[in-house]
Design a protein around this nucleic acid. Structure first.
Lengths: 338, 338
DNA sequence: ATCAGTAACTAAATCGATTTAGTAAATGCG
DNA sequence: CGCATTTACTAAATCGATTTAGTTACTGAT
């Protein structure tokens, strides 16, 4: 079916070595020959076999991606950033979904390593405590880039958002709107983000001399819409005093809003709501949800850039140097807090 | 780094041939040897190199996926069906996004063919008229499976939903709720689905002796939320008489609802709305959008099943026989039509 | 004219599996 | 017992590229 180096060599009466070298711009091939080869290659549309090349180069030009869920649109936007940036650089992306399960995450890492992807870009699940499967990646030639849900305990390149600031921004916004009893819907304190967002929330309460009431904090297993709904329901059924709600993901906020709407609790007049992620879905609810903006597409692109950076290092046989990018964040005000 | 057949052969004092055959269960290897090999392989966790195997088998165990957009959650759900079903059968999925551009679609097909994926599962863009790049797939060893946005002009396996019935179901539902002036937001009549949905709509109007008024039909370029908003706005600004709206995708319906909410037009009392796809996003709006249910996850799974079926045929050196699966559909009633 | 040095190319090994064509030993049968 | 057959294994070619280690042919300096 496909044209091979051999075919080209025969046609141009040269050796496969020469063709290969010409295409790779080796200095010991004359300009004239290079030109001839390039012209012919373009004419017949030859494309080298990635798999055959792998045997020698150990490069698959594949990126493995592990996202924890598809329900949070934030990750979907990150994916599209990653895919488009990867494509620009001739990489293809194998997408996998851990569904917030540490077990599956471990398996997926194995699959991707076995595929010999050049790099794994991943966001941890909300239950990842055993970091050994992730550390294992570091023992291979495969690069590891963490995005959004990172861990400080793993030394690798990372992109994430200034989570502490996000937590603070959301809380401060509500305080300035006159709220005093700010409840919090968050995930378990496992990925670093949760911890930082929570610190941002708590520190800001202190800063404004509001007391922190643990009964106002509800903890979600998987940050889903359903969890948001159920937790909000519980808060109300337990008659917890609150005038506002900071939700650490947009799905949680959407779930909370669903309950609030169902119960016809006036929003924003008697309760205010802030989400995180500024997802399309959160902006389309009625009323629209005020949300902390995270540039998901940019995050995806930056993750790929970090990966490419590492590939360059490795090509020069240097140990890759790690870099952490912290993306800026801001608050988009909508009807749930006006 | 990784263990190779050679290593195992050396360790067990057998030839690589024997190891390879033992793992593939050839009849000319003794049961005793097979057992020994399997045990050792399990012990050391050997995994054959897919890329090396490709050179002889021409199988990459990769599926290429092309979806037209990430904005419509329907496709996201299809993706997760495809990924999970593929994984169960030891395939990995390269995900690409055509962004409703025929040009990009063409390029992506080339990339995937060059990657030598075993199959391409795709949903056409809303502007695909030139089918030659898609037909080209048929000339290769790569299987082609179309899902959702299919074309009757291409002979291959397909999964889609009974679009005519969907169009009819939505229209009939509104008629039974007393609507007489049913407007329609649809895409261009390019993928077969649009045509069929439109026929379902039109035929049902006739069936109930309501007249079809072309001015009530608004045509969207890319079935986006934005389009839904803008087209609905135009319908109202042009003072088109209507008491309800059938939107052929959920994003269109969400956009329409956004405008209706903004203008504070009472819904469902003065206007009713039906969407297509029954996406999570459409169910979470306020009011919730009545929508035609498409089992997106199942569609993804079935697409993979069709692909596996073809692979079996090809393995037996038979020309693959094509099969079309039409999924059932029903209507989920929510507040926009109650 | 001689020899080192360079320019431009190629032969052959290699990557890690699969598969074809064989070989040696064990077995079956009259 | 001798020959054909079966059993259980292996050597070597192969897939399509890359790369190391050469090999020519030519240039230029002495």
């Amino acid at each position: 079916m496909g044209i091979t180096l051999k075919d080209i060599a025969k046609e141009l009466k040269l050796s496969t070595t020469t063709i290969s070298k010409a295409l790779q711009d080796y200095p010991d091939i004359s300009a004239k020959t290079k030109k001839k080869v390039h012209e012919y290659v373009k004419k017949v549309g030859y494309q080298p076999s990635v798999q055959a090349a792998y045997l020698r180069t150990k490069k698959t030009k594949l990126i493995g991606l592990i996202i924890p869920s598809t329900e949070n649109q934030f990750f979907i936007e990150v994916i599209s950033g990653i895919i488009s940036e990867a494509e620009k650089n001739d990489y293809s992306v194998i997408v996998t979904i851990s569904n917030e399960s540490q077990e599956r995450e471990k398996k997926l890492i194995q699959t991707l390593l076995n595929r010999k992807v050049d790099g794994i870009l991943m966001s941890l699940t909300a239950e990842t405590v055993d970091l050994s499967p992730i550390r294992e990646i570091m023992n291979t030639q495969t690069s590891l880039i963490l995005f959004d849900r990172i861990s400080k305990l793993i030394e690798c390149s990372k992109v994430h958002i200034d989570d502490k600031k996000m937590g603070a921004l959301a809380t401060e916004h509500l305080i300035k709107k006159g709220c005093k009893k700010i409840a919090n819907l968050r995930g378990r304190l496992i990925p670093q983000n949760s911890i930082d967002r929570f610190l941002g929330y708590k520190n800001t309460l202190e800063k404004y001399q509001l007391d922190f009431d643990p009964s106002r904090v509800a903890i979600s297993q998987n940050s889903s819409i359903e969890d948001g709904y159920e937790l909000t329901k519980k808060l109300f059924e337990h008659n917890i005093e609150l005038d506002s709600l900071v939700c650490f993901t947009d799905p949680l906020a959407i779930g909370a809003l669903k309950y609030i709407n169902e119960r016809k609790i006036p929003i924003p007049s008697s309760i205010k709501l802030v989400g995180f992620g500024n997802t399309l879905m959160g902006s389309l609810t009625n009323p629209g949800i005020t949300s902390i903006n995270q540039d998901a597409v940019l995050m995806g692109e930056q993750a790929v850039q970090l990966f490419l950076r590492e590939q360059k290092d490795r090509k020069l046989n240097k140990n890759p140097s790690f870099k952490t990018i912290v993306l800026k964040t801001d608050l988009i005000e909508r009807e749930t807090s006006k």
